[in-house]
């Protein structure tokens, strides 16, 4: 059974590229364009991994991450934060909130796929 990935980003082109990449790597893909929709989608599709953009309207990636980690039922869910802000404090903040990985935009597609595969395959 294919692992499910939820892609959360407010940039349609980025969502499109991620969707294409993940599908090609053999994952099931769901999409959300803001933080509130992301939480709704998580409840609906129960993904194994969330690719989470930080800068989004309505709820930021940090808030989404925090909310997801507050739910013990989803302890096994992986969270990969995506951000265009590469400052170290932001990386540290993401990791502290319980993200499993932190990827800086623009990312290498190969590396991202490898990282997602490793997180889900291990």
């Amino acid at each position: 059974m294919a692992k499910k990935i939820l892609i959360v980003d407010d940039e349609p082109n980025i969502v499109m590229s991620l969707e294409f990449l993940m599908k090609k790597a053999g994952f099931e893909v769901a999409v959300a364009v803001d933080g509130e929709e992301a939480l709704a989608q998580v409840g609906r599709v129960n993904p194994d991994l969330v690719l989470l953009d930080v800068m989004m309207p309505k709820k930021s990636g940090y808030e989404v991450c925090e909310a997801l980690r507050a739910d013990p039922a989803r302890a096994g869910m992986k969270i990969v934060m995506l951000t265009a802000k590469g400052r170290e404090t932001e990386v540290a903040k993401g990791m502290a909130l319980g993200a499993d990985a932190y990827v800086t935009k623009p990312f290498s597609t190969k590396d991202l796929v490898t990282q997602v595969t490793e997180l889900l395959g291990a």
Partner: peptide
């Protein structure tokens, strides 16, 4: 600067992702 960087990275992210995808596949 942080915002500018963010705004510049966003289109760059799309450009890079699609370019790599086209290049790799």
């Amino acid at each position: 600067m942080s915002t500018v960087s963010h705004e510049l990275r966003t289109p760059l992210t799309s450009i890079r992702a699609f370019s790599e995808m086209l290049f790799d596949d």
